[in-house]
Amino acid sequence: MNKKILKITTTAIFIIIFVVFYKALQDTNVYTPKKKSNNEIPLFSANLFYSNKQTDSSELFKLDKFYLLNIWSSWCVPCRSEHSLLMDLSKNEKIEIIGLNYKDKKRNAENFLNELGDPYQEIIFDKEGINAIEWGAFGVPESFLINDGIVIKKYIGPLNKELVKEIQLLIK
């Protein structure tokens, strides 16, 4: 009797393990943090790109408007491709685009903006990449749609036409 229970449980355990492994095969193993929305924007002090002044994050997003925080860098190739979309979006009056220049050289960043245009209302100069971490980002480019001090939506990777349309809809 005892042996029978042993047999059944052992077999059952292995079947469970099989099912779990089988299911795990279907998933990707690369981890991306969950896109938590409706989070308050993080509090931090930042260096401004042009004026070189210290400012507070609450200061930057204080208006009752939509904001798009865009993390970019001159050395990042996908940033180049999404830049024209940002230029278009910056024409929309309802939204202000704030740049976060990630681990860049100031001169390179200026050249980049001179060449492709400057859609940003204000740019945070994040030389060491610390501010990006405060936002919970881990690469470039990433974008955050913000309203009333709250992150509504988070985009990992470059924006494309569909996503920009989505943003246009959201801010209407």
Binding site: E128, G129, I133, F138, G139
Partner: peptide, 26 residues
């Protein structure tokens, strides 16, 4: 480290990991 996902921040030399190190220090 989120970029090279098999490594710790200490072991990694990715941009992200380097920023993390600075931030931990701060």
């Amino acid at each position: 480290c989120l970029i090279c996902q098999g490594q710790s921040v200490y072991d990694s030399d990715s941009e992200f990991a380097n920023s993390m190190k600075v931030l931990v220090d701060k």
